[in-house]
Amino acid sequence: MTRSRRSAALIAVAALVLFAAACSGDTTILSGESPTDLGITVTGTGEAAAPPDMATLDLGIEVAASSVADARERAAQAAARLIASVKANGVADRDIQTRAIAVQPQYDYSRSGPPVITGYTVQNDLTVRVRDLDRLGRVIDDALAAAGDAARLNSLQLGFSKQDDLLETARKNAVTDARRRAETFAAAAGVRVGDVLAITETAAGGPVPLGLPAGRSAADTATPVEVGESTVTVTVSVRFAIEQ
């Protein structure tokens, strides 16, 4: 018998042995091309929390008028007052950014026939980062007062100017959580968790924006902002080898 035929025969015998064992009713055979084909894949989530050190405001101007020129002019004046206000409160130029400017017609749909344009709305949205949180309430109040009824405060997000250390802690906690889950599954299956075969970071999330109502007059009580703690969350997918 040639060497190739002997090899084929041995493979066939091995296959029959595996098939018989698998059919015995009380044994499960897990096979693959290599030992790394056996494994447990789990998802782990880790968090890290700390007091935030900055805030991001989504501020806007919205003005309606009968003509584009009038709406644009009034919106430009309100935006200029708002920007001057946040700068007067110590916000640097690099922390003020125009996010969007839009001009939209307003229609009257109440009449028969095609809708009729009755005016125009101009919007000017700004992103403002406040790094001195002790002045955050004042920045908000003064900006809204400066822009008047045209002012909009769409959201506020508390976060971190540098969150690398928090992300590192959250990632470690996520891998620890994944191993704990894998060991639970492995113990239930009667096997042991082996080496890590692969790690994939599936999500890394920062603080969630908070919606805030727009508009307070300067005579009202100052807007209170409680900083508290913000949490960074990381989710990873980890594949562990199985040790029989």
Score class of each variant (00 low, 15 high):
2 T>A: 10
12 A>G: 10
14 A>S: 13
18 L>P: 04
21 A>W: 07
22 A>W: 10
25 G>N: 04
27 T>K: 09
28 T>M: 01
29 I>V: 15
31 S>E: 12
31 S>D: 11
34 S>M: 00
35 P>C: 07
40 I>D: 01
42 V>K: 03
45 T>P: 00
49 A>C: 00
51 P>R: 09
52 P>C: 03
54 M>G: 05
55 A>G: 15
56 T>D: 14
58 D>T: 14
59 L>H: 07
65 A>Y: 01
71 A>M: 08
72 R>P: 02
74 R>L: 14
74 R>C: 10
76 A>D: 12
77 Q>D: 11
80 A>M: 08
80 A>W: 02
83 I>F: 08
83 I>N: 02
84 A>M: 07
87 K>T: 09
88 A>Y: 02
89 N>T: 03
89 N>W: 08
90 G>Q: 05
92 A>R: 11
92 A>Y: 03
95 D>T: 03
96 I>L: 11
96 I>K: 10
100 A>I: 06
102 A>N: 13
102 A>T: 15
103 V>I: 13
104 Q>D: 14
104 Q>K: 11
106 Q>R: 01
108 D>T: 08
110 S>K: 06
111 R>V: 10
112 S>L: 14
113 G>K: 07
118 T>V: 15
120 Y>S: 04
121 T>R: 14
124 N>F: 09
126 L>V: 09
127 T>A: 13
127 T>H: 10
129 R>A: 11
129 R>D: 10
129 R>K: 14
131 R>N: 11
131 R>E: 15
134 D>M: 02
134 D>E: 13
136 L>K: 00
140 I>T: 04
140 I>S: 06
146 A>R: 09
147 A>P: 06
150 A>H: 02
154 N>A: 13
155 S>A: 14
155 S>V: 01
157 Q>R: 14
158 L>S: 02
161 S>I: 08
162 K>G: 09
171 R>L: 04
173 N>F: 05
177 D>F: 02
181 R>Y: 01
182 A>G: 12
184 T>D: 12
184 T>Q: 15
185 F>A: 11
185 F>Q: 13
188 A>Q: 15
191 V>S: 01
191 V>K: 06
193 V>Q: 04
193 V>G: 05
197 L>S: 06
198 A>C: 00
202 T>K: 08
206 G>L: 07
206 G>F: 09
208 V>R: 13
208 V>K: 12
210 L>K: 12
215 G>K: 01
217 S>N: 12
217 S>I: 07
217 S>M: 06
217 S>K: 11
223 T>Y: 08
226 E>F: 03
227 V>M: 00
229 E>N: 15
230 S>V: 07
230 S>F: 02
231 T>M: 03
231 T>E: 11
231 T>K: 07
233 T>N: 02
234 V>N: 05
237 S>V: 15
239 R>L: 00
239 R>K: 13
243 E>F: 03
